[in-house]
């Protein structure tokens, strides 16, 4: 019953969110601010994590695939496929659910408990649309940029491992990451990330917007938003993989 209540409230909130902005110039300014906050400020974490994960995947594959039947270039090939198919979209969005999602929930939640949202309503502004639509728009539009950064950084991670260790040769790694390359996998990853970006921003906003109480409740909302976004991302991942790759 509780889940159904939240689902209903979430749908009603989204209905309020998707309305024409009061002033387009203010909306565009907000979108630019949100791109800076949610996307640009996330690039460093995306790049660092992807760089190390790319290197670790290459290392793990090199150390664990010992069969003489498997070619050496399988290391580069497996690293690329793992990054493209799962890591750079799904796992990266799980990480973003933690960073961006908690940020959104606590920002909107704090505005709720300090009556700033009530103040917006009294002024006559559609507070849901004013606060949430720019966040959804900016992350959905620019998540492909973060996914691209993640893919490139991950592949560079493997490249650096090949360059600075004697675990595998650089030429074999480069051959592996080019072997049987399917461009469709990039589009698949991008499309998935759009759905995940919507989940992160809308679910976190819902939890922040519906906070009741004080600072403790803002903290709870922030945690709940991360947990729920993560679950929904994984669920959507299964559904989208079935739909798009099957």
């Amino acid at each position: 019953m509780n889940s159904l209540y939240h689902l209903g409230e979430y749908i009603l909130l989204m209905k309020k969110v998707f309305s024409i902005p009061e002033r387009w110039n203010i909306f565009f300014k907000q979108v630019i601010d949100e791109i800076n906050k949610l996307v640009i400020n996330s690039i460093w974490i995306v790049v660092i994590i992807s760089l190390f994960i790319g290197a670790v995947i290459s290392m793990q594959v090199t150390l664990n695939i010992v069969s003489p039947l498997l070619p050496k270039y399988a290391v580069g090939f497996t690293t690329r496929e793992t990054l493209l198919l799962e890591f750079s979209s799904s796992i990266m969005c799980l990480i973003l659910a933690g960073k961006v999602g908690s940020n959104i929930a606590s920002e909107i939640g704090s505005m709720r408990v300090t009556e700033q949202i009530d103040a917006l309503d009294i002024i006559g502004v559609n507070s849901a649309s004013y606060l949430i639509l720019p966040k959804i728009t900016s992350l959905v539009l620019f998540i492909p940029v973060l996914v691209s950064f993640s893919m490139i950084a991950g592949l560079i991670g493997g490249y650096l491992l090949a360059s600075f260790s004697d675990m595998l040769s650089l030429s074999t790694y480069i051959y592996g990451i080019q072997y049987d390359f399917k461009i469709g996998y990039i589009w698949y990853s991008m499309k998935k990330s759009l759905v995940f970006a919507f989940i992160i921003t809308s679910v976190s906003s819902y939890y922040g917007y519906s906070v009741k109480g004080g600072a403790l409740d803002v903290g709870k909302a922030s945690t709940n938003s991360v947990v729920m976004s993560s679950i929904l991302i994984l669920l959507a991942d299964v559904v989208l993989t079935q739909l798009m790759l099957n």
Binding site: Q116, D121, G124
Partner: peptide, 19 residues
């Protein structure tokens, strides 16, 4: 309601200024 909102002004307990 939107038109009426422009006739209302409110001072909140905690001021509710936009940080």
């Amino acid at each position: 309601v939107k038109m009426l909102r422009r006739e209302q002004g409110m001072l909140f307990q905690g001021s509710a200024l936009f940080d």
